[in-house]
Computed example of a mutant assay.
Amino acid sequence: MGHKVIDKKPISKQMESSELVYEVALHITGVVEYGANLQAITTGKAAPPPEGARFDVSLEGTVDGPRFKGSWHGVDYLNIRADGLSELHIHGQFDMADGGKVSMFADGIGTIDAKGIVHLRENVTLKSNYSAHAWVNSIVVWGVGTVNLATGEVRVKGYKA
């Protein structure tokens, strides 16, 4: 019985060989805390509670790409588990330069490194009833990016899966 050869390139390199759909450059505009302090947890000054720590992280910024130009705003209903893994649950909206709108839902994970950078992996669903953007209804997007906790900057590239 033969074995399938697995591509050993890092996942971010595998995705970059796919079609780029968009790049977002966002910044954190607000955080709702539900009893735990986000900064204390992300800087290692406090551990997430056993049940996890819930935060609503508001974001906004710009989007660019071959067929995406405009702005984005939304909320990540973030849960940081007791083991430190971040569970992403993002709802947002692309406001396109041509007046069209595309809704976005993404889930995924975030892992923080020793430098305070969160590495994101997202499974993205896009929807639109604007004819110029209806093509997004039939694709799946994989997002890869980072959050710089010191600056509040978020950068994500979305690739057609």
Rank of each mutant, 00 (worst) to 15 (best):
K45G: 12
Q39C: 05
T43F: 01
T29E: 05
T42K: 04
K101H: 09
P49S: 09
S17E: 13
G108M: 04
P50D: 06
D107K: 14
A97I: 05
L38Q: 03
K69R: 14
A106Y: 07
T111D: 05
G61D: 00
W72D: 01
I90L: 14
H73N: 07
R81A: 15
T29A: 02
K115E: 14
T42P: 00
Q39P: 04
N123V: 11
R67E: 01
A53V: 02
Y34K: 10
S17G: 03
T43C: 02
L26V: 01
H89M: 09
K115A: 14
G30E: 03
N37I: 08
M96K: 01
L88V: 15
I41A: 00
A97V: 06
H27G: 10
S71L: 02
D113Q: 09
L85N: 12
G84F: 06
A53E: 00
A106R: 08
A36T: 12
D83T: 12
P48Q: 01
V32E: 13
G44N: 01
G35V: 05
G108C: 06
S58G: 06
G99T: 04
A47V: 04
A53Y: 02
F68S: 06
E87Y: 11
L78K: 03
L120E: 08
I28Y: 04
Q93T: 15
G84V: 08
F55K: 00
H89N: 15
A82F: 08
D113P: 11
A82C: 07
G116V: 14
G70P: 00
L88N: 10
P49I: 03
A47K: 11
E23A: 09
I41T: 01
G108I: 02
L20R: 09
A47D: 08
V21I: 15
A46G: 01
V32W: 05
T29M: 02
R81D: 09
A40K: 12
T62C: 00
K115H: 13
T42H: 03
Q39F: 11
P50G: 07
H119V: 10
G110N: 09
H89C: 13
E122N: 13
I41H: 00
S17C: 04
M104W: 00
T43Y: 04
S18F: 09
G99N: 06
E87R: 14
A36V: 05
V75N: 08
E33S: 08
H91T: 15
D98F: 03
A97L: 03
M104K: 08
H73S: 13
I109T: 15
A106P: 13
G30Y: 07
V32T: 15
T111Q: 11
L38S: 04
E60N: 12
H27A: 09
L120K: 08
V31R: 05
F55S: 00
V63Y: 05
D98S: 03
G99H: 03
H89A: 12
D113T: 11
M104E: 07
S58L: 04
D76I: 12
G61V: 01
A97H: 06
K115S: 15
G65E: 05
V63I: 15
T111A: 11
L120M: 12
S58Q: 10
G99L: 02
Y34V: 05
D76H: 13
F68E: 06
G70M: 00
G74V: 09
D76C: 11
H89T: 15
D76P: 10
I41F: 00
V124A: 09
E19Y: 06
M96F: 02
Y34M: 08
Q39M: 08
K101G: 05
N79F: 05
